[in-house]
């Protein structure tokens, strides 16, 4: 199997803070990580490669510093890494991003056909879940999103069987390769890299492509120019006009605090007390 795994380097959003006075993002010093959802897909891809042979190529689009994430992925056991970086890509929305990534995947397929593309379910910075389906659509790959488990891969018949989370249950789906798969969190976690892989990752050459090298002929379809969506405004939400009404806690006895709280809740929600009482009687 020749597998491409698309990953993204993202700021560790748990550590992003908003400046209390200027209301702007304080990005300085925020560490970057591989988008956590991508790691479930990377693990699934590595496991399939281990089972059937072939290669796992990790692909990312981003600034030159995204090389760090690719090396991390090589350390987990990926065979090859490609960095797509060009100033033309700046400001890409999901449509422009899927265009650039799918063109690069098509370029990789010129060397050897690609059987599977894995993407993260979504990123933790954009949270759109749109790039994977966009790549599948552009490359004509059969699309399997929110996969909880790969039940089987028949390389000879070129068929894959998976379990997919849907709203009311789990779909068991079988489709033909080539496919685009996004894995749900809770599937197998990323392995620890072996020592040989970690050593290799530090020195392995990384393929760096600009737009032209990736086979992109029309840079108008990339970056801000190629993005149909426009961000018009970025802002912090307004606080509510009234702040929370505070219930006194300090230095008071538990019984008093509890009585005040119940009284305040029942005053705010007049029907609550009666409903809870009915529930209690029925219990």
């Amino acid at each position: 199997m020749n597998i491409v795994v698309c990953i993204k380097q993202v700021p560790d959003s748990a550590q992003i803070r908003v400046h209390p006075v200027t209301n702007t993002i304080m990005r300085q010093g925020v560490p970057t990580i591989i988008n956590p959802y991508d790691l479930f897909s990377l693990e699934a891809a590595l496991a399939l490669r281990d089972m059937t042979g072939g290669t796992v190529t990790v692909l990312t689009m981003g600034p030159p510093m995204a090389e760090e994430s690719l090396r991390k992925a090589l350390g987990y056991g990926a065979d090859r890494a490609v960095l797509l970086t060009d100033r033309f890509f700046a400001g890409s929305d999901t449509l422009a991003t899927s265009y650039a990534l799918s063109t690069a995947i098509a370029k990789l397929a010129e060397e050897a056909p690609i059987d599977m593309v894995f993407c993260g379910k979504q990123t933790i910075d954009g949270d759109t879940a749109q790039v994977g389906p966009g790549i599948a659509c552009r490359l004509g790959l059969n699309q399997l999103t929110y996969v909880t488990a790969v039940d089987g891969l028949d390389a000879a018949a070129r068929e894959i069987t998976v379990q997919r989370r849907s709203e009311g249950g789990v779909q068991v789906l079988r489709t033909k390769l080539p496919v685009m798969v996004t894995m749900l969190e809770g599937s197998a976690s990323i392995r620890r890299g072996t020592l040989p892989d970690l050593l290799r990752a530090a020195r392995a050459p990384i393929t760096v492509w600009n737009a032209a090298a990736a086979g992109i002929e029309d840079v108008q379809r990339c970056g801000l120019r190629g993005s149909p969506t426009v961000v018009k405004k970025v802002f912090a939400p307004k606080p509510r006009a009234e702040k929370a009404k505070l219930i006194d806690v300090k230095g008071r006895r538990d019984g008093e605090i509890a009585a005040d709280t119940l009284a305040a809740l029942f005053a705010a929600l007049p029907k609550l007390e009666g409903d809870l009482a009915r529930q209690a009687v029925q219990a």
Binding site: L95, D127, T128, G134, A136, C137, S166, E167
Partner: peptide, 23 residues
Amino acid sequence: ATTLGRDLAGTVATTLATGLTAD
């Protein structure tokens, strides 16, 4: 923005080459 809606919206927006804003 359900598992169905997100799966479908990404394909439709890409096919139509239009903008899609999530969530």
